[in-house]
Write a protein that binds this DNA or RNA. Structure first.
Length: 280
DNA sequence: ATGACTTGCTCAGCAAGA
């Protein structure tokens, strides 16, 4: 199974190139973020004509997540347990949740399409919201894997964190000045890994960014960020046989500011660490 | 230069992104 995640920055503005990519790259499951529309506005027909079914979740022109799949999507949900909400002037308990998460089961994998809050600035309420959101996601991950240690769980999407300095090539993104690289954000990302997840792409794609700002020639100068990830549980990570970051999708007419991240899964065989080494 | 793109909403200017 080939699984991809892509912050599309409006599905309606570029549905053609997104479906073209999925077909050309033989993607089986595509998790999308920032669809920027409500479900009734989603261009389902283009996906269906290419052999995909789609589940979409959006509440307004902001945020929005979706999953397209060749095989049926089961047990679809639009929040993880404990996911915080955020409302202007009312961002404590009980605030309405935004359209930032979708979970679905396909091909034996529990897949999440996640759009972590941006944070805006270090002194903005959205920054604390971002940290709360990530902590709740860690809690969900830890509890899920405690109950089902062998579950193939994948957290994919736009995490809005550059975990290390190697993931930050944008000179305006600076620790102590902007979001995405602050120690608390990086600690929140590390806590997800400590809860039992692995960055499944980095070992196979040791360098390269997934996002470049539209402004100031960031892409031609290759001053980007690596903020889009496919994090997997032990069972998922063991099945990953290949990975790619499709930098070329930042080129051409009207690209998203993010590019797709892809993994190939070999779910047919046993986990590699269960197989005795009988050669060599 | 308190901006520099791009999108959606609504119709010229704002909100939001990272």
């Amino acid at each position: 199974m080939r699984l991809a995640t892509w912050n599309v920055n409006s599905i309606r503005a570029r549905v053609g190139r997104i479906v073209d990519f999925a077909v050309r790259e033989d993607v089986d499951v595509l998790a999308m973020q920032e669809i920027k529309c409500k479900p009734e506005q989603f261009p389902y027909a283009e996906f269906e004509a290419a052999g995909y079914t789609v589940e979409a979740h959006g509440l307004s022109q902001w945020n929005g997540v979706a999953i397209a799949s060749r095989e049926p999507l089961e047990d679809v949900v639009t929040a993880f347990p404990g996911m915080p909400g955020f409302e202007k002037g009312h961002n404590g308990p009980g605030a309405a949740q935004e359209a930032r998460a979708m979970g679905a089961t396909v091909g034996g994998v529990r897949v999440w399409s996640l759009y972590v809050p941006n944070g805006r600035s270090l002194d903005d309420p959205h920054y604390l919201y971002k940290l709360d959101w990530l902590e709740a996601l860690r809690g969900y991950t830890q509890e899920t894997l405690a109950a089902q240690p062998d579950l193939a769980l994948a957290l994919t999407g736009d995490f809005n964190i550059a975990p290390t300095d190697a993931d930050n090539g944008d000179p305006t993104v600076v620790e102590g000045v902007t979001t995405h690289v602050s120690p608390p954000e990086r600690a929140a990302f590390q806590a997800l890994l400590d809860a039992g997840l692995t960055d499944t792409v980095r070992p196979l794609v040791p360098e390269g960014y997934t996002y470049w700002d539209y402004k100031q020639l960031r892409f031609p100068r290759n001053q980007g960020l690596r903020i889009d990830f496919i994090l997997g549980s032990h069972a998922f990570a063991n099945a990953v046989a290949g990975a790619a970051i499709h930098r070329n999708e930042r080129k051409g007419d009207a690209p998203s500011d993010h590019v797709p991240v892809v993994v190939d899964l070999d779910l047919t065989g046993p986990a590699d660490d269960d197989v005795p080494m009988i050669f060599g």
